[in-house]
Write a protein that binds this DNA or RNA. Structure first.
Lengths: 129, 129
DNA sequence: ATTTGACATGGAGTCGACTCCATTTGATAA
DNA sequence: TTATCAAATGGAGTCGACTCCATGTCAAAT
C-alpha cells in the first residue's frame, strides 16, 4: 500500500503518517524501485496501534517508549503493561475531573434557567399593571 | 489585594493573572499611587470564574466571548447560557470517548495479563522436565 | 546611599503534535 | 514531449495557553 492509501484507511493525513515515522513510532518503511514507500501488513498494524493509543490520549513520547520496549522483545512485557496501566490511571483521573466539571456546568446552566424564568415572570407582572 | 496574593489565593501564577488581563478576560485593574495593581472583590470573582471555566475545559477565546456578553448586560443571558450548554455538550462527548478509551486500555492490559500468566506456566513446565 | 525585592510592561520563547512549504524526482497522461 | 501528479525530504510554521526575559520603577531595609 502507498502512503496516500494508508492515510485514507486510518483517517490520518499523509503528513501525520510521515511524522510518525520521523518520530520513530514506525520503523523505516521500505521503498520500491522508484523510491516510493510501500507499507506492509506490519506497518499497518503499527499505525493502527498508534492511532488507538493516540485516541487513548497517550503522548508520542510514551508511544515511542512503548515501541522501543516492543523491539527489545518479550521480556519487556511487564514494562509495557506498566505504561498502559499508567495511561489508564491518567484516564480514570480525567474521568473524575470531567464528572465534576459537568456537574459544575449543569449547576450554572440551571442557575441561568432560574434567572430567565424569574425575569419572564417579572415582565408579565409589569404587563398586568 | 496585590497580584502575588491573588495568584496565591487562586493557585495561579502571577504571569497567568496578568495574561488574563492582557487577554481581556479581566477588566483593566486600577493601580495605587505607586503604580501597583490593586485587585478588588470584583476582579477576584472574575478570576475565580475564569478558573472554574478553564477547569471546565473552556478556551480563553470562549471565556472572552462570555465576558464580553456579560458586559452587554442582562439581555445576553440566553447567549451566555448557550455558550455554557455548548461547553457541556463538549464535555459529555469527551466523557463518552473517555469511557471507550478506558475500555480499550483495560482490554489491552487484560491481554498482557493473560500473556504473562501463560509465559509463567510455560516456564514452570520446563522446570518440571 | 545603596542594595534588595516586588511589581509593571512589551515582547520573545516554549511545548506537543502536527501541518505546511519549497524543492526535487519519478511515473503517467495528453 | 511536455505537462501533471503523487510522493520524498528537510525544515519552517502553527496553535493555545501560558511562561520567561530584559528593563525599568518604586519602596523598604541595611
Amino acid at each position: 500500500m502507498k502512503i496516500s492509501q494508508v492515510a485514507q484507511k486510518y483517517g490520518l493525513s499523509i503528513d501525520t503518517v510521515r511524522y510518525y515515522e520521523k518520530a520513530g513510532l514506525i520503523d523505516p518503511v521500505a521503498k520500491n524501485e522508484s523510491g516510493r514507500k510501500v507499507y506492509q501488513e506490519k506497518e499497518m498494524r503499527r499505525i493502527n496501534f498508534i492511532k488507538c493509543m493516540r485516541q487513548a490520549g497517550m503522548s508520542i513520547e510514551n508511544i515511542k517508549m512503548y515501541v522501543d520496549l516492543f523491539h527489545e522483545g518479550l521480556d519487556t512485557i511487564p514494562e509495557r503493561k506498566t505504561i498502559l496501566e499508567n495511561q489508564l490511571k491518567k484516564l480514570m483521573h480525567q474521568q473524575e475531573e470531567l464528572d465534576n466539571q459537568i456537574g459544575f456546568l449543569e449547576d450554572k446552566i440551571a442557575n441561568y434557567e432560574q434567572t430567565l424564568v424569574k425575569r419572564e415572570k417579572a415582565r408579565k407582572e409589569i404587563e398586568n399593571i
